Amino acid sequence: MLLPILIAAAQPVAAPASGPVVVALVAGDGEARCLPDRSLCLELPGEGKDEGGRELRISSPGSGDDTGTISLPLPYGADGKGVSLWPNIIPVPSTNEDAAQPAAEFLVGVIEEERAMYSGGGGSGGRLHLLRVGVAPHAAGLVEVLDTVWDSSLMIRACFSEQDMKNRLEACHDEYSFTGALAAAAPDGGELPALTLRTAATAYPQTSRRTEDNSNIKLKKSDLTHWKDPECSYTRLLHYNPATARYEMDRPAPDCSVYTTP
């Protein structure tokens, strides 16, 4: 059943000769998000709710035939973690041009979010699981090809007295954020498209560091800006390694857990 869905969906969004593309999904019916021509739609039932997002539903409402909906289980969302759909999809160019019906594949992302609350603050941190969605000869399934830190938002209380409020100009929370973005990279001849991962990590006020006690620091107005951490704001090329069936970075990423762990 999944084979006609993916073949029908692949043709209008095939990557150009110059390389792969990252396609933004658009709103579909209900919680579904679709390719712009609605040839393929994805949905995580109950997304954002407890025990929601435990399966990926794939449908092809614009294919013109009755292919139905395929549901594939996901190993994410345990222990109260939230699950959401990455709002993009990456078509994988076919390498079997001579086949009468070349198998279509896509890279689909699922973001798993961990949340924490603590006195006077809280935060969340997400990981992106990039999944290879496609068909083998008589079978369909998902294979994870990338697991990487993705985003975070943290607020930590920093005022415990009126003097602290004065010292910090009433900026009574340290705020930390981390964001990631995936884009297509120049083709490398690999089995899956090469990708670029870009991240940005910031702290507010600009003098705040999560590993330090910032409550008694006297701030100036000029400190009330976001500081971009040069080490944790990085760019890495991702190449698919068929030996490990995973994407690997061209060089290791730094430890940015002070931003990404709630």
Score class of each variant (00 low, 15 high):
156 I>P: 00
160 F>P: 03
169 L>S: 04
164 D>L: 02
118 Y>A: 11
190 G>N: 06
157 R>H: 04
122 G>E: 12
162 E>D: 14
153 S>Q: 08
168 R>E: 04
152 S>M: 04
172 C>Q: 07
143 V>P: 00
161 S>W: 07
148 T>K: 05
143 V>W: 08
120 G>M: 14
179 T>K: 14
117 M>Y: 06
116 A>S: 15
123 G>Q: 09
129 H>P: 01
163 Q>R: 11
138 H>S: 14
164 D>P: 00
118 Y>I: 08
184 A>C: 09
184 A>K: 07
142 L>Y: 03
138 H>G: 05
162 E>Y: 01
160 F>Q: 02
156 I>S: 09
183 A>F: 02
131 L>V: 02
120 G>T: 13
130 L>C: 06
157 R>F: 00
142 L>F: 06
179 T>D: 12
174 D>I: 03
185 A>R: 05
173 H>Y: 02
145 V>Y: 05
168 R>A: 03
167 N>G: 01
163 Q>W: 00
158 A>V: 06
179 T>Q: 13
141 G>C: 06
127 R>D: 15
127 R>M: 10
190 G>K: 09
137 P>T: 11
133 V>F: 07
162 E>T: 08
188 D>G: 15
139 A>C: 04
186 A>M: 10
156 I>L: 10
118 Y>C: 02
179 T>G: 12
151 D>A: 12
142 L>R: 02
166 K>N: 08
132 R>A: 06
181 A>T: 12
116 A>P: 01
169 L>K: 13
175 E>P: 00
147 D>N: 12
157 R>G: 10
186 A>S: 15
127 R>G: 01
186 A>K: 11
128 L>E: 09
175 E>K: 11
154 L>E: 02
121 G>M: 13
140 A>Q: 13
120 G>N: 11
180 G>P: 05
169 L>P: 04
117 M>F: 07
174 D>K: 00
162 E>F: 04
176 Y>Q: 01
165 M>I: 05
189 G>K: 06
124 S>A: 11
156 I>N: 05
121 G>K: 12
126 G>I: 07
136 A>W: 04
166 K>T: 13
164 D>K: 00
